[in-house]
Computed example of a mutant assay.
Amino acid sequence: MQTPACSEADDATATDPPFDVFARACPSRETLEHVTGRWGSLTVGALREGSCRFNELRRRVDGVSEKMLSQTLQALERDGIVNREAQPTNPPRVDYELTPFGAEIAERLVALITLLEERMPEVLGARSAYEAAREGR
C-alpha cells in the first residue's frame, strides 16, 4: 500500500489525512523530530513543570550544551510549542514556557517517559540477555 503524499487539506481526499508524517516531504516529520529528539523531548518535559529561564533549563536538562539548548528552543518556538518572553530589564530576562499545544505534547510525552522509567528493569534485563546471547555466538 502506498503512503499518501503530504498535502494541504484541499488536495487530500476525504479519507486521507491532510498531513502524513510517513511522507518524506511532510512538514509534520520535522516537528516530530523537534519534539522526539533527545534535547527536544527533555526540554518539553522540563518545561512541563513551569516556565524557566535559559540557565535553569540548562541545569535541568543535564548534559545539553548551550548551543544545542538554544537551537532546540528556537525550533520548538518556531513550531508553536514553546513561548519565549523577553523582559526589558537590565540585564535582559528571558523566560520560556510551553504553549497550550506544547502542554498537550508534554502531557503525552511525560506518560511515555513514566512508562520507560517504570519498565527499566525489564529493559536492562533484555539488554543483558541480548549481550549474553551475542557473546555466546
Rank of each mutant, 00 (worst) to 15 (best):
G37C: 13
D11T: 07
E85S: 14
E85D: 13
P18M: 11
S41P: 01
A106V: 03
R29W: 02
A133D: 11
A12S: 09
N55H: 14
A111T: 08
E33C: 04
L109V: 05
A23L: 10
A129Q: 13
G50Y: 13
Y130L: 13
W39L: 07
Q71Y: 10
A75C: 04
L76V: 10
E77Q: 15
G37Q: 08
T36Y: 15
P4K: 03
C6W: 01
A14C: 06
E56C: 01
F19G: 00
T72H: 08
A103V: 03
E104Y: 13
T89F: 08
T114N: 10
A133P: 00
A12I: 02
S128W: 01
E49D: 15
R78I: 02
T89D: 12
W39G: 01
S70R: 08
R108H: 08
E49Y: 11
A133T: 02
V61H: 00
G136F: 03
P88F: 07
F22Y: 07
A25S: 07
G45L: 08
G80I: 12
N83D: 13
V44N: 03
C52L: 14
E135K: 08
G63R: 00
G80K: 06
R84E: 15
P4L: 01
G50K: 11
A126N: 13
I105D: 09
S70C: 04
L69D: 02
E56V: 03
P18R: 09
V44F: 14
L42W: 10
D16S: 07
R24F: 13
G45W: 11
R58Y: 10
D16W: 06
A9E: 13
E8P: 00
E49A: 14
G136A: 14
Q71S: 13
E33R: 15
M120C: 01
I105H: 06
P121Q: 01
T99W: 00
M1S: 05
L57K: 06
Q2F: 06
E77M: 05
G136R: 10
A5C: 06
D16A: 09
S28Q: 10
V64K: 01
I105G: 05
A133N: 07
S41I: 00
R24N: 00
R38L: 12
R58G: 11
R59H: 14
M1K: 04
D95E: 14
L124W: 14
V94I: 15
V123K: 00
L73H: 04
